[in-house]
């Protein structure tokens, strides 16, 4: 992507390579894990189910991770996405039960709108009340889940409540690629294009890189942060609808803990938790890596307890790696400056 300035090997050029390495690094890790698991058990990749699961399982998390990454880039965080997913998944089921014959597209719109509304609440509280997003979304995590529990009660949506063609979305394939994966990748491509090529997308990076400078530049910080949360909420809403399609069963606990996986995916993918750095592609690969590891480790004969520890080590390792790269890069830049 970056044309390295012709004259000398510049710091910017080095950075571009480093950044590239950052995403290729996790991609290589992902490939290695798939290969290792496949060697141990060829069915991991080469059975029809194995291949499908490989693509299908991370697709819903991918949507959450993309939304999360957009928020993290602005130096915020959205802890409520798991609860938003739970609410919209239940809404999806209720719509099919309470309004029989409702077109599937209507359910998608409803889910996305509800998610966007919940995201708007998060964003408004963060942007206008000037309270750190960590606190706000921790609060809404519980509030949204509470609403879900009191709405659902001990009830739950069963696969039988959902129309067959809707459930077909969750398991169906198009040219051997799961439909869910296609939806997730389309969203990913669109969002990544937006973040890279539109002014408002670049401004999200600027805000995360230095909020004070963003104010001095006269950027619409409040509006941008607000819309990042709306997008994150809307994507969580979409993920909720797809969750219902994929799993069929929706209880009041659907999506619990997914917010942490989404953050983990973004961080593993190289999105800096301090904002301003990272790509959605990285976050997406992070989502794939996180869930593929979960499936591969039992095959590789690693005990249950250690599986979680490995995921934790992965997240910490990713952060340490980013830190080391950042320190090394700034030292290199300083040396380049002294040398000139």
């Amino acid at each position: 992507m970056t044309a390295i300035a012709p004259r000398r090997r510049t710091a910017g050029g080095i950075l571009a390579t480093v950044l590239k390495q950052r995403e290729t690094g996790i991609l290589i890790a992902l490939v290695l894990i798939v290969v290792a698991a496949t060697v141990r058990n060829p069915g991991f990749l080469f059975s029809a189910d194995g291949y499908r699961d490989l693509l299908l399982t991370p697709s819903i998390l991918l949507l959450l991770a993309v939304g999360q990454a957009i928020v993290i880039v602005t130096r915020n965080v959205d802890l409520s996405v798991g609860s938003v997913l739970g609410l919209t998944a239940y809404l999806t089921g209720r719509l099919f039960i309470d309004a029989p014959g409702i077109p599937t597209i209507g359910v998608f719109v409803a889910g996305i709108l509800l998610g966007a509304l919940l995201g708007l609440i998060n964003g408004a509280l963060v942007a206008f009340a000037k309270v750190p997003s960590l606190v706000i979304t921790l609060g809404t995590l519980y509030i949204y889940r509470g609403i879900n529990v009191s709405w659902t009660g001990s009830d739950r949506i069963n696969a039988g409540d959902l129309p067959v063609d809707f459930r077909g979305l969750g398991t169906g394939q198009l040219l051997t690629i799961p439909i869910l994966t296609i939806i997730a990748v389309v969203v990913l491509v669109a969002a990544a294009w937006y973040l890279r090529n539109l002014r408002s997308g670049r401004e999200l990076y600027a805000i995360g890189s230095d909020p004070a400078a963003a104010h001095l530049y006269g950027l619409k910080v409040t509006k941008r942060v607000l819309s990042a949360f709306v997008v994150s909420g809307a994507l969580a809403g979409l993920a909720g609808v797809l969750y219902a399609a994929r799993y069929g069963t929706v209880s009041s606990g659907a999506g619990t803990g997914w917010e942490l996986q989404a953050i983990g995916a973004a961080v593993i993918g190289g999105v800096a938790i301090s904002g301003g750095v990272g790509t959605l592609w990285g976050a997406a690969i992070g989502a794939f890596l996180l869930l593929t590891i979960n499936r591969a480790l039992p095959i590789l004969g690693i005990q249950d307890f250690w599986q979680r520890a490995v995921v934790g080590a992965l997240i910490i390792g990713a952060i340490v790696l980013d830190r080391v790269l950042a320190i090394r890069q700034s030292r290199r830049l300083l040396e380049a400056r002294d040398a000139s």
């Binding site: 090529n197 670049r202 401004e203 600027a206 890189s209 530049y217 800096a272 301003g276």
Partner: peptide, 23 residues
């Protein structure tokens, strides 16, 4: 006050980058 993570060019034009089709 600049954006440390962004390129020199982006820092100069942030908020009013020249844009073409579809913005």
């Amino acid at each position: 006050t600049l954006f440390p993570d962004l390129s020199v060019t982006e820092n100069i034009f942030m908020g009013r980058q020249p844009s073409g089709r579809f913005g």
